[in-house]
C-alpha cells in the first residue's frame, strides 16, 4: 500500500505557489518523488532530540566581519544590469501587468 504523505490537492497548490506549471507526466513523476522524499524525511520525527538542542543557522557559526561602514561605492555599470533584461523601455524593465490589478 502506498502511503501518500501529501495529497494531490496540496501538491497542486504547491505548484501554484511555486509559480510553476507541470505537464501531466512531470506532475506524476514529481508527485511520486516528493512522497518518496518525505518518507525519508520522516526519519527526522524518530530522532530523540534532547530538550536543550538549539536549531543551528549554520553548522559552523561563521565569524565574519562586523557590519560594513556606511560608505557609498557605486557600481560602475548599472546599465549592464538592465541590459540583461529580456525587455526594456527607457531604462526600465518591462513586464506584463497583473490581471485583475487596479
Amino acid at each position: 500500500m502506498t502511503t501518500k504523505r501529501i495529497s494531490p490537492e496540496l501538491f497542486e497548490k504547491l505548484v501554484g505557489l511555486a509559480a510553476l506549471e507541470l505537464t501531466a507526466e512531470e506532475s506524476t513523476y514529481l508527485f511520486e518523488e516528493m512522497n518518496h522524499q518525505l518518507a525519508s524525511v520522516e526519519a527526522l520525527s524518530q530522532i530523540p532530540l534532547p530538550e536543550d538542542v538549539e536549531p543551528s543557522l549554520h553548522g559552523l557559526e561563521p565569524k565574519g566581519l562586523p557590519p560594513r561602514p556606511d560608505e557609498w561605492k557605486p557600481f560602475a555599470h548599472p546599465e549592464a544590469i538592465i541590459a540583461l533584461a529580456p525587455e526594456t523601455e527607457d531604462g526600465m524593465i518591462v513586464v506584463p501587468d497583473v490581471k485583475g490589478a487596479k
Binding site: P74, F75, P78, E79, I81, I82, G91, M92
Partner: peptide, 11 residues
C-alpha cells in the same frame, strides 16, 4: 533616473 542607482546585489 530609473535604474541608475543599482548594483548586482540590490537588483
Amino acid at each position: 533616473e530609473p535604474n541608475t542607482n543599482i548594483c548586482p546585489v540590490c537588483s
